[in-house]
Lab assay of single mutants.
Amino acid sequence: TRVETATETAWISLVTALHLVLGLSAVLGLLLLRWQFPAHYRRLRHALW
């Protein structure tokens, strides 16, 4: 049971790290898009909202 718990903890930390990385890359990508294509971003936002 001790090994299982350790594996579970490792998986949880791995998944958390993955989610953090994905979230950060998504935010960075959005910022980059907004910085590179302001007109396109505004049009996209206008279409979405």
Rank of each mutant, 00 (worst) to 15 (best):
T1H: 13
S25M: 09
L22G: 09
A39F: 11
Y41K: 08
A10H: 08
A39N: 11
R43T: 14
L44Q: 00
R42A: 12
G23S: 10
H46N: 14
L14S: 01
V27W: 10
L48N: 05
A47P: 04
A17D: 01
R2W: 12
L30S: 09
H40Q: 14
T7M: 13
W49T: 08
A17F: 08
F37G: 02
L18T: 04
L18I: 06
H46C: 09
T16N: 06
A6S: 14
V21Q: 00
L30F: 12
H19F: 04
R2Y: 13
R43C: 10
S13Y: 14
T16R: 05
L32Q: 01
H46Y: 09
A47K: 14
A6H: 07
L22R: 02
V21H: 00
R45H: 09
T16C: 12
L24T: 06
L22S: 10
F37V: 05
A26I: 09
A10C: 00
E8F: 01
A6T: 13
A6N: 09
Q36K: 14
R34V: 02
V21R: 03
L28Y: 07
A47R: 14
L18P: 05
L48K: 00
L31V: 10
R2N: 11
T9F: 11
L48D: 08
L24S: 04
L20N: 00
L32A: 11
I12Y: 08
R43V: 09
G23T: 11
L30G: 11
H46D: 12
G23W: 06
R34C: 01
S25K: 06
L22M: 13
E4R: 10
Y41L: 09
A6R: 11
W11L: 02
S25Y: 04
L14V: 12
H19P: 01
V21C: 12
F37K: 03
Q36T: 15
L48F: 05
A39M: 15
T7C: 03
H40A: 12
H40N: 08
L33G: 06
Y41Q: 01
L31A: 14
Q36D: 02
R34N: 03
R2D: 13
L44M: 13
T1Q: 14
L28Q: 02
V21F: 14
L33R: 06
L18K: 04
H40R: 10
R34P: 06
R43G: 05
W35N: 15
R45Q: 09
L32H: 00
V21Y: 02
L33M: 12
T1G: 06
T7R: 10
R34S: 09
W11K: 02
L44E: 01
E4V: 11
L18N: 05
L32D: 09
R43S: 12
A47I: 08
T16H: 04
L48H: 05
L28K: 04
H40D: 05
L32R: 06
H40W: 08
W11S: 02
S13H: 08
L32T: 09
R43W: 08
P38Y: 14
E4P: 05
P38R: 15
E8R: 05
T1V: 12
T16K: 00
F37L: 11
A6G: 12
Q36R: 15
A39I: 09
L33E: 05
S25F: 05
H46G: 08
R43F: 07
T16G: 03
R43I: 09
L48Y: 03
G29R: 03
L33C: 12
H40Y: 09
S13F: 14
R42L: 13
Y41W: 13
L44R: 06
V15M: 06
E8P: 09
L20A: 10
R43M: 09
L28I: 06
L14P: 00
Y41V: 15
E8T: 06
L22A: 12
T16A: 12
A6K: 12
W11H: 07
L28G: 03
V15K: 03
S13N: 06
G29P: 07
T7S: 11
T1S: 11
L48G: 00
L28R: 03
E8D: 11
R34Y: 07
V27R: 05
L22N: 04
L20E: 04
L48C: 09
V15W: 02
E4K: 10
Q36V: 15
T16E: 00
L22Y: 01
A6C: 08
Y41P: 03
H19C: 00
T7Y: 12
T9V: 12
P38N: 14
A10P: 04
R42N: 12
E8C: 05
E4A: 11
H46I: 07
V15G: 04
L48M: 08
V3F: 05
L14R: 01
T5P: 00
H40F: 13
R2G: 11
L33W: 06
L18F: 10
F37P: 01
L22H: 05
I12W: 03
V3I: 14
L28A: 04
T16V: 13
L18Q: 03
A10I: 07
L22C: 12
L24H: 03
P38G: 10
P38C: 07
A10K: 13
G23Q: 06
A47G: 08
L33P: 07
L33I: 09
A17H: 03
L30E: 00
L48S: 00
L31F: 13
T1W: 09
